[in-house]
């Protein structure tokens, strides 16, 4: 018996979210008195993989062929399935992000294993297996029971945190038996982000709304994001007006994000916007309208003019970082 965690390979590197899912898998394994093991697809150095041992992972199966440096949903599903069978896994943990969403549902069908996505806590009970997740875009919490012997969950990013538990992590090569030409899709081109931080797994996000009054006023917001090491985002009216790229739109139909810190500048906080940010751990709202609904969901609020507040906040962050 074992709990298996899927470790997304970020170009040969691990990110904080990997350690979070590893921490989670270890805690689940602990409650079931079995080991927590990991699977990593594609190229990654031993020294990097070993770091998973800091979060309770005692064995990692690596499928090192560089073919696996690019996500192919069907192929990856096949490989994880074979790992599950070989290692007698009973629970598989994925991150609830693009890659988790790509593989976990397929694996559920492949293994006839009940899948609950976006879980926010450890199982409330293991037998029967009951777990909680957010539903209705964060407006409610649900308890879900998985009735199949094999179980799959995906963990909402930033919902669990890191829990150190040092264990030696043994790295083992895994040779899947798969046909590499079995897929009707293949990557023919790539366009990498020029710079900046990917919004989807950013730890901190600074976001602007209509209250920014025009695209020419974004400079202080970008400056703040740069100093904080944050990604930039915007509300829907801003992307609809073409002030910012639609890639930056967060909210319903746009990107749904769950950073540790979300700073909303000049965003009124319509339900559709909140649906995309309610999973953030901490929300700061800066708005000149004291009655804006964003203050109902924010943890910290500042009333005033963004143009004046942003540079001050940037200075405060610089001072905090000791610059």
């Amino acid at each position: 018996m074992a709990v298996l965690v899927y470790i997304q390979n970020f170009g040969g590197k691990l990110k904080k979210q990997n350690f979070e899912v590893a921490s989670y898998a270890s805690k689940v394994a602990e409650s079931m008195h079995c080991p927590a093991i990991a699977v990593v697809m594609g190229t990654m150095e031993d020294s990097e993989i070993e770091r998973l041992g800091n979060y309770g992972i005692s064995k990692t199966l690596r499928i090192a062929d560089k073919v696996y440096n690019t996500l192919i949903n069907k192929l990856f599903t096949r490989v994880v399935q074979q790992v599950v069978v070989q290692e007698n896994v009973t629970i598989v943990v994925f991150p609830d992000n693009n890659e988790g969403k790509a593989i976990a549902p397929r694996l559920s069908v492949r293994l006839n294993a009940g899948f609950v996505s976006g879980v926010v806590s450890l199982p409330l009970s293991v037998e029967p297996f009951i777990i909680s997740k957010r539903v209705f875009s964060g407006k409610a919490l649900a308890q879900v029971r998985i009735n199949s012997p094999l179980k799959i969950v995906s963990l909402a990013i930033n919902s669990f945190g890191l829990h150190e538990a040092k264990t030696p992590n043994r790295i083992v090569s895994f040779e899947p038996e798969v046909s590499l030409n079995d897929d009707s899709s293949r990557v023919v081109d790539r366009k990498m982000h020029a710079e900046g931080i990917s919004l989807l797994d950013a730890d901190k996000v600074v976001s602007g709304g209509r209250g920014m009054k025009g695209p020419e006023n974004w400079k202080p917001l970008e400056e703040l994001a740069k100093v904080m090491g944050a990604a930039t985002a915007c509300s829907r009216p801003v992307s609809d007006a073409g002030w910012r790229s639609h890639e930056e739109h967060v909210g319903q139909t746009g990107k749904i994000i769950a950073p540790n810190l979300y700073i909303a500048v000049g965003i009124s906080g319509a339900t559709q916007h909140v649906a995309g940010i309610s999973r953030s751990k901490c929300i700061v709202a800066i708005n000149n309208d004291a009655d804006a609904p964003i203050f109902e969901v924010a943890d910290y609020g500042v009333i005033g003019d963004a143009a004046q507040i942003l540079p001050k906040l940037t200075e405060a962050f610089k001072a905090f970082k000791g610059e």
Partner: peptide, 17 residues
């Protein structure tokens, strides 16, 4: 908020997703 049906349909049909 499951984000599941698409991937599951693909696997049932054994097709690419």
């Amino acid at each position: 908020n499951s984000s599941s049906v698409g991937g599951m349909v693909a696997e049932f049909l054994d097709t690419a997703s």
